[in-house]
Structure formats: structure tokens, C-alpha cells
């Protein structure tokens, strides 16, 4: 049986992890490679690296990092953050990343999804969607949720699927950082609407939230950052809890 995936997300700036990573037993918690190795050993099913740096050397630094990660781990990983050109995609895939995630660039130029999935295969194109409810309607947001658009989340999800996205990474800006659980109602609706896998993101605070997002939210995978980085939810323990709830996970 295909299992539900647990995906830690690492924020990267200039080749280093940022945002309070607080792991014990790590020589260098700022080293993404060491963190990636630790997560792979703990049973993470996949990793996401989100590059938030905005320097001119970004592409070079990122592709060098991807190469080091690929050499260190034997589980799949996705790279995202400001990816907008074919050359960016080419560089990270050639160095061993399995998928790239595109976000704002896809909203600004939807044709990009068609081009990338045609060239690299839809299995490696993840479209990340940040959305927030405004007056009861889910609206897509840009630039990490800062800039609202008039685009409806569900319309956009249908469109990215039709254009060749292989997967959707949906982050609810209303839930992100709250630790109050994932946006399960919207997730379930997305899952029924499109026929590609959905990664739930935003709101993980405890183990029950993961159970809920897989059962009620019908998510195929769940992504989180701080609960893993701060050791609040150890992955082996989370997986054993999920298994007890008869949720298929890889142990």
C-alpha cells in the first residue's frame, strides 16, 4: 500500500539552514547536509529545501548544496524558493534533486508549468500554492503569503494540474505558524478536485494534527518545519502513532 509521507522542510539562506534549528547531537545545526542526513536516518520520507536567499550567487550556491545533499542521502528531495527559469531547474535536477517546487513564478507566468513539465517530466514539477481565506474565499497569495491575488485556490489547483504539475504543495497562510492543525477542509476539497498528490503544509503542532490531515484532510503527505527542527515531534514516534491509527506509513 502506498504510504503517507512525512516531509521535514528546511529553510536555506546562502547555503545554511536558518530559522531556529535546535537539534542536539549535531556538530553544526546550520549545516543543511548534516540535518538532511539526520532526517533521512530518522525515517523522513522526503525532504524539502526552501531557499530564501536573494543574492546573485544564489543559483551557484544552491546547486552546490544540492550536490552535497544528493551525495549524503538516499531519500528523495525537492528544492524550491525563487525558482523561475529553466536553467534553475536544470541546475538543481542535474545535481541530484528529484523535484523542484515553483510558486510565485508559476502564478505570474502559468505557461512556465507547461514548459517545465514537458521538458523535465511532470513527476518532478511541484507547484507550491500559498493561500489564505479572505471573506470566506480561499485566495492565492504571492511572495511567501505577503501579496494577495484575486485567484481562487481551487481554480488555480485545477489549472496547475491541467498544465502538467505532478504534485501540489498547499500551504494555508491562515494556519502556518499557529500550531493549531492543518487546513483540512480545504485540503480534502483539493484532494477531491484534482487527481495529483497533495502535500499539506502549515499548522502542524502535535501528532493528532498529522492524523487529522491524513484522515480528514485526505492529504498524501504532510510537511512541517519547527515541530521537527525543535525535536517536539520525533519522526519515529510520529510514525508509530500514525501506524497505530491504521494510517499506512513506512517504518
Amino acid at each position: 500500500m502506498l504510504t503517507k509521507r512525512i516531509i521535514p522542510c528546511l529553510d536555506i539562506k546562502d547555503g545554511r539552514t536558518v530559522k531556529g534549528v535546535n537539534f542536539v547531537n549535531l556538530r553544526d545545526a546550520g549545516d543543511p547536509v548534516e540535518l538532511a542526513r539526520k532526517y533521512a536516518q530518522e525515517g523522513a520520507d522526503e525532504l524539502v529545501f526552501l531557499d530564501i536567499s536573494a543574492t546573485e550567487q544564489k543559483r551557484k550556491t544552491l546547486s552546490e548544496l544540492v550536490l552535497k545533499v544528493a551525495a549524503a542521502i538516499d531519500i528523495p528531495f525537492t528544492v524550491g524558493g525563487g525558482i523561475s527559469a529553466e536553467a534553475d531547474v536544470s541546475a538543481v535536477l542535474a545535481n541530484g534533486a528529484d523535484k523542484v517546487s515553483i510558486n510565485s513564478a508559476a502564478v505570474k507566468n502559468p505557461e512556465l508549468i507547461n514548459r517545465l513539465s514537458k521538458k523535465f517530466g511532470n513527476q518532478c514539477i511541484v507547484v507550491a500554492i500559498d493561500a489564505k481565506q479572505i471573506a470566506g474565499t480561499w485566495k492565492v497569495h504571492l511572495l511567501g503569503g505577503k501579496v494577495p491575488t484575486e485567484i481562487n485556490l481551487f481554480d488555480w489547483a485545477k489549472e496547475v494540474e491541467a498544465r502538467g504539475a505532478g504534485e501540489i504543495l498547499f500551504t494555508s497562510m491562515d494556519h502556518d505558524g499557529t500550531k493549531n492543525g492543518f487546513a483540512n477542509e480545504a485540503l480534502a476539497k483539493l484532494s477531491e478536485l484534482v487527481n495529483i498528490p497533495i502535500i499539506a503544509s502549515g499548522g502542524a503542532g502535535n501528532e493528532q494534527h498529522f492524523i487529522d490531515t491524513f484522515v480528514e484532510g485526505k492529504a498524501d503527505a504532510a510537511l512541517a518545519a519547527s515541530v521537527f527542527h525543535f525535536g517536539e515531534i520525533p519522526i519515529p514516534q510520529l510514525k508509530s502513532t500514525l501506524k497505530k491509527q491504521a494510517i499506512a506509513v513506512r517504518i
Partner: peptide, 12 residues
């Protein structure tokens, strides 16, 4: 189309 396509992830 009774299942999500592509299949993506870990299976036995």
C-alpha cells in the same frame, strides 16, 4: 483515474 496519478511515494 480511480487513484492519484502519478503514484508518488513509498510502497511495499
Amino acid at each position: 483515474n480511480t487513484v492519484k496519478v502519478p503514484q508518488m511515494g513509498w510502497n511495499t
